[in-house]
Design a protein around this nucleic acid. Structure first.
Lengths: 231, 231
DNA sequence: CGATCGTAACGAACATGTTCGTCAACGTCC
DNA sequence: GGACGTTGACGAACATGTTCGTTACGATCG
């Protein structure tokens, strides 16, 4: 299901000392592997240190030898998720922008299913090998399109941050829909906002929540692309 | 320190039943007040349900009558933070863009001191009265600048999301600096990335982490503004 | 006034992430 | 070989957010 990941890493890979035949040696690889399996089969929220420890026949404290915390584990899971993520070619400038927007939308949608993971990525920037390849590809597309080196460098950060925060935000919103009919939201408050106190809000009321999530996402990437090309 | 907040709210304000003379009645207002005080004096991470309950001479479970969860509490705290946030005037179109970018940078910096709070805002969109006024002001500035109604409506969302995610991201990064010298980061990994595997990353290495946080933040808002005006 | 219903108050319990201390195995050095 | 230092393994404990069940009070209705 997943290939061996070679980390170019200053961090020494811990060497398991479990020698008892009834227990397999622990490793970062097995930890991430089990976490990914549980996530895929039961959802990210089921990936708890206790659950993973149980799967590996150990105690949760043992896992901290291999990952610093859950955020780091989430970063590794993101790299797993990127295993099957198709990156576009860089061989021609034609249609580079469409390819980049498509890539960003797909990445956002990938993360969309795992909002907690996206939120972790706002805590610690991912840096696994597959994520690096994603960055490299985005930079390559921007370069192919003639964007200045500085704008490309700062722009990749901006684009991926936007993808991450969009997934964190909207993925969570969808999770919360069930049983929240009475819950006060920005939408409900805005619908009742007094035109005296909030004149512009009242005027824009119809548009504020118009469009599908997909339409708005695509529009936001177009906005970002336009700005990156011309600022 | 804070004024009475009037909520336009479908949610009925709970009425405390504590009649014993030794304990003041509970209320959402007192809860938020205590939380804000603790946050200001000791930091957001000290604002725990147990701490607040202790301050209010009750048990943590009692607080859930007044706030649904910590995210909702954070939303209320954000509105408190906005009490002294100065909104620019809308009387003239001259310099509207500079005013808007300034406002967004200030808002980002405000949130920057409270990254956990910013992350909560990615879970649940804020909707307190002062936040509504912020939205109204942004919309007003975009309107003053001649941005289409649709772009303004979708743009305010985009701009404030970007502010929030920037604060969530960078605020956390600064918190982590102490004692993390050995920690593997995107920067360290990128510095060692093989030009064969990551050609564009290697080429952009110098620029990827150039500029100050403030420079990049300002640039990103300029990018967004450019895109919103012209897409 | 008594009965009924809704709900504030909150203890007990649970789930989760994480830290600290202890032990034992392993590697290195003399 | 013995001494010493490092570190994987992991239980116990702690902190935190939250839920559930119970009690008692207040409001409403007949």
């Amino acid at each position: 299901m997943f290939v061996t990941i070679v980390f170019v890493s200053p961090r020494r890979e811990p060497v398991s000392r479990r020698q008892r035949p009834a227990k397999a040696p622990l490793s970062r690889e097995s930890l991430v592997g089990v976490a990914f399996r549980v996530m895929r089969e039961e959802g990210l929220e089921r990936v708890t240190m206790r659950r993973l420890a149980s799967e590996l026949d150990t105690g949760p404290a043992s896992l901290y030898v291999y990952v610093r915390n859950t955020v780091e584990l989430h970063g590794a899971l993101l790299d797993e998720l990127l295993a099957d993520f198709v990156l576009p070619g860089l061989d021609t400038p034609v249609g580079w922008e469409e390819r980049l927007i498509d890539l960003l939308c797909r990445y956002t949608e990938l993360l969309h299913g795992y909002p907690s993971l996206a939120r972790s990525m706002l805590t610690l920037l991912p840096h696994g090998p597959r994520y690096l390849r994603l960055i490299d590809c985005v930079l390559g597309l921007l370069h192919t399109g003639g964007v200045s080196a500085r704008n490309a460098a700062w722009g990749v950060d901006l684009l991926l941050q936007h993808a991450t925060s969009t997934a964190a935000e909207h993925g969570t919103r969808e999770e919360s829909v069930t049983g929240e009919d009475e819950m006060e939201t920005l939408a409900s408050v805005a619908a009742e906002a007094s035109p005296e106190r909030y004149p512009h809000l009242a005027r824009a009321r119809e548009e504020l929540f118009s469009g599908t999530g997909r339409e708005r996402m695509r529009w936001s990437f177009e906005v970002l692309m336009k700005g990156i090309k011309t600022t």
